[in-house]
Amino acid sequence: MHAMTISEFGGPRALVPVELPDPRPAAGQITIDTSHAAVGLVDALFRRGDLADRPGFPQPPFVPGLEVAGTVRELGEGVTGFEVGEPVVTLSQMSLGGYASVTPAEAAMTVSLKECDVDPAQAVAVLPNAVTAYLALTRVAHLREGESVLVHGAAGGLAAAFPAVARSLGASHITGTVTSGARIADTTHLDYDEILISDDFVKALDGRKVDVVVDPVGGAVRTASLDVLAPLGRILLLGHAARTPDTPVTGDELWSRSVGMLGFAVGPYLQTDPYAARPAAEHVIALLADGTLTQRVDELPLSEAAEAHRRLEAREVPGRIVLTI
Rank of each mutant, 00 (worst) to 15 (best):
T5C: 01
S7K: 00
G10E: 00
G11H: 00
V16D: 07
P17T: 01
E19Q: 10
L20G: 04
P21E: 02
P21T: 00
P23T: 01
R24V: 09
A26I: 01
Q29C: 10
Q29R: 10
T34C: 08
V39E: 04
D43I: 01
A44F: 01
L45V: 02
L45N: 11
D50A: 09
P55R: 00
P55T: 00
F57K: 01
P58R: 00
Q59R: 03
P61K: 00
E67C: 06
T71E: 12
F82M: 11
V84L: 15
V84Q: 15
P87D: 12
V88S: 11
S92D: 15
Q93T: 09
L96A: 13
A108F: 06
A108H: 05
A108D: 14
T110S: 06
A130K: 06
V131A: 05
L135E: 10
T138K: 04
A141T: 13
H142A: 14
E145F: 07
L150R: 03
L158S: 08
L158M: 12
A159Q: 08
P163S: 04
A164C: 09
V165Q: 09
G170N: 13
H173A: 13
G176Q: 10
V178W: 08
R183Y: 11
I184P: 12
T188Y: 14
T188S: 15
L190E: 10
L190M: 12
D191N: 14
D191R: 14
E194G: 08
E194D: 13
L196W: 09
D199H: 13
V202W: 06
A204M: 05
R208V: 07
K209A: 13
V212D: 03
V213W: 02
V221P: 07
V221L: 05
S225M: 02
L226K: 03
L229N: 05
P231S: 02
I235T: 12
A242V: 03
T244Y: 09
V249S: 13
L254G: 08
W255D: 14
F264R: 08
G267A: 11
T272E: 15
T272K: 14
D273L: 09
A277V: 05
P279Q: 08
A281V: 03
H283G: 06
H283W: 05
H283M: 05
V284G: 10
D290P: 06
D290Q: 05
T292A: 12
L293A: 08
L293M: 10
R296M: 14
L300G: 05
L300H: 04
A308Q: 08
H309P: 04
R311L: 13
E313S: 11
E313P: 10
P318T: 01
